[in-house]
Design a binder for these strands. Structure first.
Lengths: 210, 210
DNA sequence: CGACTTGTTGACTCCGAAGTGTACTTACCG
DNA sequence: CGGTAAGTACACTTCGGAGTCAACAAGTCG
């Protein structure tokens, strides 16, 4: 299906092979998530046998955790939040991580986040960003329920904007970050605007856009 | 775990039971998707035995399809698109469907959409909305790649806004639709703005929001 | 009442995938 | 050149969940 190697597969030093397996596992898991991905799928993706996997990881779960941790570490490294909140730097960090590993990015936010057994770690990451966003938004949006809603939505929009950008073939990387930031700002702006009971003729704008 | 009934479970006429099973299955599947949900989970959710499921559905796959079709039909009914495009009515329809069945809404857009074997039907639904959105956006955004990106993103933001609203406890239902529409418009506005090379001091706005 | 239908229980088969062991090759490095 | 580590082949065991069957219990309706 992919690029199978009936050949005896080149030899690699242990650490390197482990890394390659993690990369392959990331790709495989990113397609259908944990439950729907077999170790044979991963072995095939890595171009080796299933048995080899067990020389590097204790179990499927262990391996999945390693994949998740690896990607989370990448995120933590890129989007270190000095309590500053959901800043431009946060978007840049997310984007950088997504560019480094698109599959890992998708895996985290499209699959792992919805898998009860694994979502904890990454949910905590997201919660941090959401909390930071809340502080900023709450300062502008008096209605607390609305502020929580916007704070919840802002990071999600950033993530979805990045994924949509990946899907679109990563056009114009130089301006991507700016555009994503604007999309997020657009959402926050919506919360602000609708809080003062729709001062904008949004209906007309939406209908008359064409 | 939930509200188990060790009792012999009340009897229901066939059609009614089938519907109740579909509702239970929707809840169960919405938690972890197709692969990670067992028929026992569903039977427990419905308060009956696994064997009964087979008196209503041929297989697990068959049942899942039924659940998906049911929810898709609900969507089609609510958000009928007279080629008009991604209008206010579309948002209203999506929102109505989400209120009718939050679990179904989540199941479709958080799980089924990422399950290769099943995403086809619902992907088509999403593609229709995306295409409609593209027509509207392309009229305002000259850069075609950017327009495609925004068109891809707009429906996703609408959906995520709805899910975030569900998560927040469905506050202020009367204005929810308007807020979601504004969020979507904010995203589209971002595409428009960034196309003319960032006329807004977005950086300052974002940093200085607090 | 008696038949039918909905339900339960507990057994059973089947299959795919996780996980393990052993014996056999072969590349690489000191 | 020889040993070790990386890799293969294949033959398992184990396990959970899908799918099936038969016997039995109890509401409901003619």
């Amino acid at each position: 299906m992919i690029g199978e190697k009936p050949l005896p597969a080149r030899r690699l030093p242990r650490a390197q092979r482990r890394d390659q397996i993690l990369a392959a596992a990331t790709e495989a898991f990113a397609r259908s998530g944990f439950a729907a991905t077999s170790l044979d799928d991963i072995a095939a993706e890595a171009g080796i046998t299933r048995v080899i996997l067990y020389r590097h990881f204790d179990s499927k779960t262990d391996m999945y955790q390693a994949v998740l941790d690896r990607m989370c570490a990448r995120l933590d490294a890129n989007v270190e939040e000095p309590v500053g909140g959901f800043t431009d730097a946060s978007v840049d960090g997310l984007l950088a991580a997504a560019i480094e590993s698109p599959a890992g990015f998708r895996l985290l936010f499209q699959h792992a986040l919805r898998e009860p057994e694994f979502k904890e770690r990454i949910e905590k990451f997201r919660a941090d960003i959401t909390a930071a966003a809340y502080l900023q938004i709450a300062a502008v949006v008096p209605d607390r329920a609305l502020a929580r809603w916007a704070a919840q939505l802002a990071p999600v929009v950033a993530i979805e904007a990045i994924i949509a950008w990946l899907d679109a073939g990563q056009p114009d990387p130089a301006k991507a970050a700016a555009r994503i930031r604007q999309a997020v700002m657009g959402v926050i702006g919506a919360a602000v605007a609708s809080d003062v009971d729709c001062p904008l003729p949004h209906h007309a704008r939406m209908e008359g856009i064409s």
